[in-house]
Amino acid sequence: MKLKSNKTKEIAICLSLILFSLFVIFYLSPFHIEAEKAEILALSPRLFPELASWLIAFLSTVLILITILEDERNRHPKKTFNTFAEEMTVLAASAISIFFIVSFILLGFIPATFVSLVLLNLTQGKLGIIKNLGISMITTLSVYLFFHYVMEVFFPVGELLK
C-alpha cells in the first residue's frame, strides 16, 4: 500500500516537473526573455533555458515510464515524505524566516535576531522560557559584536528606528 502511494507521488512529482518545463518553454521564455528571434542559434538567449526545460520534460517522462514499468517488488521503500509534526516545524521555521527578513528591515538586526531566535527555540520546545531568552540574547549580542567589530560587517538601522 505504502509502495503504491509512493509510486503515485513519484508520478505526481514528474507530472509537475513536466508542467513546469512546458510553462518555461511556452510562457516564461517567450515573455520573460527580452529578445527577438535570433538568426544564429548562438545569439539566442533562449537557447540554454529552453534546452534545459526540454531536458527536464524528457527526463521526467523517462522517470514516469521507469516508475510505471518497474516491478513493485524491486522498489526500495524510502522514507522520503514527512510526518505532520516535521512538516509543521519546517513550516513554522519558514514563517519565522520570513518574519526575520521583514523585522530586520523594519527594526534592525538586534531585535529581529533576538525575537527570531526565541521563536525558533520555541518551535523546538526544549528550552524553558528563561533559558530561551538568555541564550537568544547572548547569541544575538555575541554575533552582533563579532561581526560589527571584528569582521566589520555593519548592519543597517531599522527603517522604523531611523
Binding site: L117, L120, N121, L127, I135, T139, T140
Partner: peptide, 9 residues
C-alpha cells in the same frame, strides 16, 4: 536546540 538556531543566524 541551541546549535541549529545559531547556525541559522
Amino acid at each position: 536546540s541551541v546549535m541549529f538556531p545559531i547556525v541559522w543566524i
